[in-house]
Amino acid sequence: MQAFEYASPTTLKEALSLLGERWGEVDVLAGGTDLLSLMKDYVHTPKRVVNIKGIAELGGIRRTPAGLRIGATVTLDELLASPVVRTEYPSLWTAADGVRSPQIRNMGTVGGDLCQRPRCWYFRLGYGLLAQKDGTSLVVNGENKYHAIFGGGPAYFVSASSLGPALVALGAKVRLASASGARELSVEEFFVIPKSDAEREIALRPNEILTEILVPPATGVRNATYEVRHKEALDWPLATASVTLRMKGATVESARVVMGHVAPIPWVAREAERLLAGKTITEEVAEQAGKAAVAGARPLSQNGYKVRLAQVAVKRALLAAARGKA
């Protein structure tokens, strides 16, 4: 890795003062489970690395009247150890548990999960975020079995975030701080599809730090995540679905259905959401919702199977949510 300057501030203010104005100059280090690989592979070559693990205010999980406040440097392991998360937000808990490496759960953070870079093998080999060579997509013409079936390009990587789909489905927000103040975005808005190699796949600006995640109260909702995994041990899911159902008795008042690992962003299945409103979740309804969720999929040459996997993930997540308690 390229030599860099290392800073380990203890206050957010100090950390923010150390950031750059352009991507590529400064990287923020939390768990390091992604950043160190990026640096060793020279995909990222920051001049400065700012460690935020020493900033106390970025840690901790706290229940507030507005919901659950999760600090950005809370580790996946801490998230899994939270009884509130386990009982009230099973979709989030399941998604975190899907990171099947104890080492990564021990080091990796909630903020890092949202900010990690895509795993697209062309990107990691240095062909750029959009993996283009001589103006054409290496993904479209190449090896794309793990790539996107939604989004329509020019980005074909899939969002690597494990927690993103669950947080979008739960209506969570992120808080982004910069030296000039802080702003809040929904997690849904936080993820963006880049149109060029110069852009990022998240709405974070180079001079900002993601400081916390705010998840609305889970009263009156059922939520669940289902992951289709090739391996049980550490592996990226092939397709996931996270659902949040606002219930009125046995009837779905409104639904959020979000698929993971199928698009450059957590992909909201609006057709499925519309279909579910006013329904009772049965095997048949779940099946229909799964079909509706993938109706707009545009698979590439080798990833047509992911359409089916996403459909099954939606179905199974809905059935799991329906079995859970509101």
Partner: peptide
């Protein structure tokens, strides 16, 4: 082993 014919690289 997953080889890419475009780049000639061993992707995984």
């Amino acid at each position: 082993r997953i080889m890419c014919q475009q780049t000639g690289r061993f992707l995984n």
